[in-house]
Design a protein around this nucleic acid. Structure first.
Length: 978
RNA sequence: ACCCGGGUGGUGGAACUGGUAGACACGCAGGACUUAAAAUCCUGUGAUCAGCAAUGGUCGUGUGGGUUCAACUCCCAUCCCGGGUACCA
């Protein structure tokens, strides 16, 4: 009986499905465990082998925890709102709902073939009204809340209204620019009141500069803009003022930072989030402007360098620029501002090194020594960070130094010989000079002293700044959640929660509306309401994904987003698996939403993910052939009509050798394709690399026959290879039937796998050929889950062989069943227990590649021992279940079990089989291994020394000398030091 | 430029807290079975030197140094690769 994986897998997948064995209950005696994958966006391309990597890892862990006696929640769903579906709709006219549905079906069928243990009864789709109803609901909670600095948490906006009614803005002076008394508040009309409240709401609307992408007709988030162009499509992006929705994530900056201490994310991941939040501590201080009432506020992290300030720089957009510019300087300042405006973000970014700026003519006064300081404007100072103005200290900051040098501004040295006059030195270790009351202090100590003085003089205060901006929350797009908001006379009025979901209306056309508004603005009937107009933008992709892990806990609830009992039971996601690419987007937003829901009392934990595992990317191998075109360069070697091109080295030899008419024809009629290994370096520019579908390449060899058969463009082509030409000394052409079937193609390693790069490997093909169990184990065997690694299909055979070998422990091809009920001996029990220990440890620490190896070792050993005993084989199958569930289930039943192996108990480790009474100790002399001696484990040190010294080999190495000392490390080794 | 990772055979990768480097697998070579192929099994496989052989010596984890009886592992310096951030004051 052979290992018929196709039948086994089909059979058991059906059984599991029919029995609903993967469905989990929200109440159980068992402890809970929540294993979650980052849910996929159902793209049209389907899965490639890179996608399931994380899913397999989480599936193994979920199954393992289940066997270990946990009630495991392991759901799957789809992040089904988003741009690609809409883009596709614009191109083809198909409704995004239709294509999305189709794509989800493809994904699910692909996933099912791999045998995941998802509880599909909990499946969610973010584009499902029953789901986004609660996305909208949470948005309303954000809208109806504010962040109270006193209590350090989100509260209902009602508490703020009460406070305003009672004592005006008095208690919130640090949180608002408004100043009003209780009486004034009450006298404000509701529009004014709402305007003020809007500045507090956690979800708020405001006019702001947004990244506007003309080509996509939409606003993009900062992380959707890369180098000044859109991440998708690479279209140019510019700044535009628009009314937008935002989430006040900046209020949570500190808690998001602190929360990182409580979760198990990789250091790299934490670091990325910290950088994104970008906390910096320093001081804000004012510089009075000479001959004026005005003052400029600057932000600095180095107040200790205050006496080294040689000029101030304002961002060109700074509001005081016009007021302070002197009449003489007006013209040049205007010219500079025009120049800055003319520059796109992209230019500004790509020409970072370029130093530009303009003097305003005005001077500020250093509050400590009264020195007059020129005020400049320059684009290297950003309006959006700090106060949009800096104090420049050229001896300590390289950009300030470059600026000063470029514009011939004299540099004050406050750090003595730490400054060499050629470059700035940003040290904090120097002792200050020329620094008034700070003289003689170490810079890092002077920071605090300076801030105290600044606060004492009332010209500034200690200040913490964050790089992070509030998160843009609206898109001028169709395929997203509509905002449950009606604009009534300039006031944003939320829909009643009972009216949710506000369903996304059907549209005929997906193009943008006027003025950059979204497609929804074209639906006049929908937009116009008795009391105003609906908000026409939709929520961004991350809206639905910011809380989906909560919905899985109680996916069919009609009363609330998830029952408190359910969220209390399942609590945090114990293990969350996904790629690093969501480090600063999704992961930050879902942490924010969780914290807000926690503050408002809806859930009882404030970090969503206890542990995060980032799976590495599986890179593809792209294959190229090279099309030869001698006319491509302007070198002498031009291909004349029927003339052999004059080329050198390999190519010239190759072509000069062509005397056959077929070869001449080849050059005249068809295109020639070469493998890279015969391209001489100096001829490279005459060869154009062309991607070849990976399917046509097997073990570096190109299947020319299939390629030409399926692609018309190659019908008259000729393929030339090093092997073909040099080894066989012949020139091959397809027409002359001297064709080589194999052409070597070059490999470009380490490209991301994608359909467009023609290097994607479809898991379906592999599952069909080797089975899901082989596929699962091979993906794990490739290397550590967290590491990026290249895909190589060849190695899969090894894992497949392993499963066949395992099968043969149970069945013989001829004899059939060969497993027995015999009692196991010590050697067999030792192998088993060694494996239990190893598999358990490895699975626990997500080291699945070494676990797979351990299985292989175990089966090899059992084969060698000719062990076919049920006592050994059954526990082995249970260990294997998480990795290869189908074959385990099949064999488990063959052993006579009625219940599913999924309900089996994890085998217990019996340590006594691992403890030995004797051990072969490695003996090294001066650290070099020389021999091994068997020593009883309970032998005391003096005995060991005696045994070792009596050994002939040791005697030989000692050569009469007596050892200085003998180091004996129990269970490890003995080292003799001479 | 800054901040994180990481450099181990022909290849993917093992070696968890310093203790026999190269597990396991691919590939390759040789062999067995077979009319043949597939499948399966066995042997060898870091480099180098000595030996008919069993075997033994030396070198070997990017490079140079250090700590230690003992270093892929710890410390210092340096080079290279991958990821992230980027005029953030």
């Amino acid at each position: 009986m052979e290992y018929n994986f196709r039948e086994i897998e089909k059979n058991w997948q059906a059984v599991w499905k029919d029995s609903g064995i993967y469905q989990v209950s929200n109440s159980s005696e068992k402890p809970k465990y929540y294993v979650l994958d980052m849910f996929p966006y159902p793209s049209g391309a389907g899965l490639h082998v890179g996608h399931p990597l994380g899913y397999i890892a989480s599936d193994i862990y979920a199954r393992y925890k289940r066997l270990k006696g946990f009630n495991v929640l392991h759901p799957m769903g789809f992040d089904s709102f988003g741009l690609p579906a809409e883009q596709y709709a614009i191109e083809t006219g198909q409704h995004p709902a239709t294509t999305t549905e189709k794509n989800i079906a493809t994904f699910k069928s692909q996933l099912d073939k791999i045998g995941f243990c998802y509880d599909w009864s909990r499946e969610i789709k973010t584009s499902d009204p029953e789901y986004y109803r609660w996305t909208q609901w949470i948005f309303l909670q954000l809208f109806k809340s504010w962040y109270n600095h006193d209590t350090q948490k989100a509260e209902s906006i009602e508490t703020l209204i009460i406070a305003f009614e009672k004592s005006g803005s008095a208690n919130y002076l640090d949180q608002t620019t408004y100043r009003f008394s209780s009486g004034e508040w009450k006298s404000f009309d509701s529009k004014k009141q709402q305007e003020i409240l809007m500045d507090f709401r956690l979800a708020f609307s405001s006019y702001g500069e947004v990244n506007w992408c003309e080509a996509l007709g939409t606003v993009l988030a900062n992380d959707e803009v890369v180098n000044g162009v859109s991440e998708r499509g690479g279209h140019p992006v510019e700044k535009k003022k628009m009314r937008q929705w935002y989430l006040r994530i900046t209020e949570y900056a500190d808690r998001l930072l602190q929360g990182l201490e409580t979760v198990q994310f990789s250091d790299a991941m934490k670091e990325m989030q910290r950088n994104w939040i970008g906390k910096s501590e320093g001081a804000e201080m004012q510089f009075a402007i000479d001959n004026s009432q005005l003052a400029i506020k600057v932000y600095t992290t180095r107040p200790d360098t205050i006496f080294g300030v040689d000029f101030l720089v304002l961002a060109p957009e700074h509001e005081l620029v016009n007021q302070i510019t002197t009449t003489e300087q007006h013209k040049s300042v205007d010219e500079y501002l025009t120049y800055v405006k003319s520059r796109s973000d992209r230019e500004r970014l790509s020409e970072v090194k370029q130093i530009t700026g303009c003097f305003t003519g005005a001077y500020a006064v250093n509050p400590f020594d009264g020195k007059r300081i020129p005020i400049w404007i320059a684009e290297y100072v950003l309006a959006g960070y700090g106060t949009g103005a800096i104090m420049a200290v050229p001896c300590g900051d390289q950009r300030d130094f470059d600026f000063a040098t470029h514009f011939n501004i004299a540099i004050t040295n406050i750090i003595g010989n730490h400054f060499n006059g050629n470059e700035a030195n940003p040290t904090k270790e120097a002792v200050l000079e020329n620094s008034g009351f700070l003289n003689g202090l170490l810079m890092k100590d002077a920071i605090g002293v300076a801030i105290n003085k600044i606060e004492e003089l009332g010209i500034g205060k200690r200040k913490i700044n964050y790089r992070m901006r509030d998160a843009g929350f609206s898109r001028q797009r169709y395929w997203g959640e509509p905002f449950p908001i009606i604009w009534s006379d300039g006031i944003a009025v939320p829909l009643d929660e009972k009216e949710l979901p506000l369903e996304l209306p059907f549209v005929e056309k997906y193009g943008p509306g006027k003025e950059g508004e979204g497609p929804l603005s074209n639906l006049i009937d929908w937009v116009n309401m008795p009391n105003g107009k609906r908000e026409t933008s939709t929520m961004p992709g991350y809206a639905g994904s910011s809380w989906y892990f909560l919905r899985y806990m109680d996916p069919h609830n009609n009363e609330t987003f998830a029952d408190k009992k359910a969220t209390d039971y399942w609590n945090q996601v114990d293990v969350y698996i996904g790629g690093t690419e969501h480090a600063v987007g999704h992961l930050l937003y879902s942490r924010l939403w969780t914290k807000v829901l926690y503050d408002l009392g809806y859930i009882s934990f404030d970090e969503p993910f206890k542990k995060l595992v980032n799976q590495g990317m599986i890179t593809g191998v792209s294959e190229f052939i090279y099309r030869y075109n001698p006319n491509q360069s302007d070198s002498d070697s031009k291909l004349m009509a029927n003339q052999i091109p004059i080329l050198n080295i390999n190519i010239s030899e190759l072509l000069s050798d062509i005397s056959s008419p077929a070869a001449m024809m080849a050059i005249g009629e068809g295109e020639m394709y070469f493998s890279k290994d015969i391209i001489p370096p100096n001829e490279e520019n005459k060869f154009t690399p062309i991607r070849v579908l990976i399917d046509y390449v097997d073990s570096n060899k190109l299947d020319v026959e299939s390629l030409t058969k399926n692609n018309n463009r190659y019908s008259k082509a000729f393929f030339v290879t090093k092997e073909g030409f040099y080894f066989k000394e012949k020139w091959y052409s397809k027409d002359k039937e001297l064709s080589v079937k194999q052409v070597f193609v070059t490999i470009s390693v380490g490209e991301k796998m994608s359909k467009s790069k023609l290097n994607a490997i479809n898991p379906d093909v592999l599952v069909d050929k080797y089975g899901a169990d082989t596929f699962r184990m091979y993906e794990m065997f490739l290397g550590p889950v967290e590491q990026s690694k290249p895909w190589d299909t060849k190695g899969i055979e090894g894992v497949h062989r392993f499963l066949k070998k395992l099968w043969r422990l149970f069945f013989d091809d001829i004899k059939g069943k060969i497993w027995t009920e015999e009692k196991a001996n010590d050697a067999e029990l030792k192998t088993l227990n060694k494996t239990i220990k190893k598999i358990e440890e490895d699975t626990e620490r997500f080291s699945f590649n070494t676990a797979v190896s351990a299985f292989m070792v175990c089966v090899n050993e059992l084969s060698d021992l000719k062990c076919h005993k049920k006592e050994i084989l059954e526990p082995l199958l249970i260990l294997l279940t998480p990795y290869a569930p189908h074959i385990s289930e099949e064999l488990y039943h063959e052993l006579g079990n009625k219940d599913s192996i999924l309900n089996a108990a994890y085998p217990k480790l019996e340590n006594k089989y691992l403890i030995e009474s004797e051990k072969e100790y490695p003996i090294s002399i001066n650290g070099k291994l020389r021999t091994t001696i068997t020593i009883s484990l309970d032998a005391p040190q003096p005995d060991v020394e005696k045994i070792v010294l009596n050994s002939e080999i040791v005697q030989k190495w000692l050569d009469g000398k007596s050892p200085k000392k003998i180091i004996f490390i129990k269970n490890k080794m003995v080292n003799v030091v001479v």
